[in-house]
């Protein structure tokens, strides 16, 4: 084989193409474009039961997944799921990888500078969770304790702002790591969504866990790219309609041990 730099450059083209081709498939903007393309691509987090987890056949399942499927049903297109973790939600949207994010995406003004949120389809409080045997009544009891949180999550902000003396806040990159730290006894207490308690109570081997006190309330919206009023308006209409029809309550009852959806504000 004769060596040629031109041939080498040709061989490298796919790599360059890959870099340039970073703009990927999910570029559809409006509901019409999504329907025309024939699928809706939705980012979910499968590590946050009861909102998203893997069922016994390792398929995504949970409140977020059911809401996503309801969107597919309304648009009459199949749903393609893409899994993300908390820090990956905004990049998934910005990189056009997905059409929308339904992954316990709390509505905050900082995030709303990067993405648009629909009106809330679910909500919960960040709460302090600890073993039953540990006596914690309020923030003051957390003095000199190790408390695990998910970096940048609601509970991180709330606990940091409380400025409790001697508290050691351990920040993990995602929820599962925080829960794992709690279960392995690496931390005395953890901040988490009130959904966390459901599987913590079941998950613990010997220790029983309970919610001690609420930290801050949050509501989850469906996140989309900014500059997309048609899709945003359609999603708001969709959320209104599943609230009104009782479908959202049914989804909540199915995954939250019979509990209906909490009252949700609109904006």
């Amino acid at each position: 084989m004769r060596f040629s730099f031109r041939r080498l450059a040709l061989a490298l083209l796919p790599a360059i193409g890959l870099a340039a081709g970073a703009v990927s498939a999910a570029k559809a903007q409006t509901p019409d474009e999504i329907i025309k393309r024939g699928k809706v691509v939705i980012a979910v987090d499968t590590t946050v039961p009861p909102y998203g987890s893997l069922d016994s056949s390792n398929q995504p399942s949970g409140i977020d997944i059911d809401v996503a499927n309801a969107i597919g049903k309304q648009l009459k297109v199949p749903v393609e799921f893409v899994t993300v973790n908390s820090p990956g939600r905004i990049p998934a949207l910005l990189s056009n990888r997905v059409d929308m994010v339904i992954a316990i995406f709390s509505i905050t003004p900082e995030r709303a500078l990067q993405v648009s949120f629909s009106i809330p389809y679910a909500g919960q409080s960040a709460v302090l969770i600890a073993p039953k045997s540990v006596n914690i009544k309020g923030p003051d009891d957390l003095k000199n304790m190790k408390v695990g949180v998910t970096r940048g999550a609601l509970e991180d902000g709330a606990l940091t702002a409380l400025n409790i003396p001697g508290i050691q806040i351990l920040r993990f990159d995602d929820g599962p790591s925080t829960v794992q730290a709690m279960l392995s006894g690496q931390i005395d207490a953890m901040g988490g969504g009130d959904y966390g308690e459901i599987y913590l109570r079941k998950g613990a081997k010997g220790e029983e866990y309970e919610q001690k006190f609420p930290l801050r309330a949050a509501h989850f919206g469906i996140g989309i790219r900014r500059g997309n009023p048609e899709l945003l308006q359609w999603l708001n209409t969709f959320v209104y309609s599943i609230k009104n029809s009782g479908e959202l309550d049914a989804i909540s009852r199915k995954h939250r041990g019979g509990a209906p959806m909490i009252p949700l504000p609109v904006f």
Partner: peptide
């Protein structure tokens, strides 16, 4: 964040 769209795979 810079505006160049790169997904996790890429």
């Amino acid at each position: 964040m810079l505006g160049v769209r790169i997904d996790a795979w890429t």
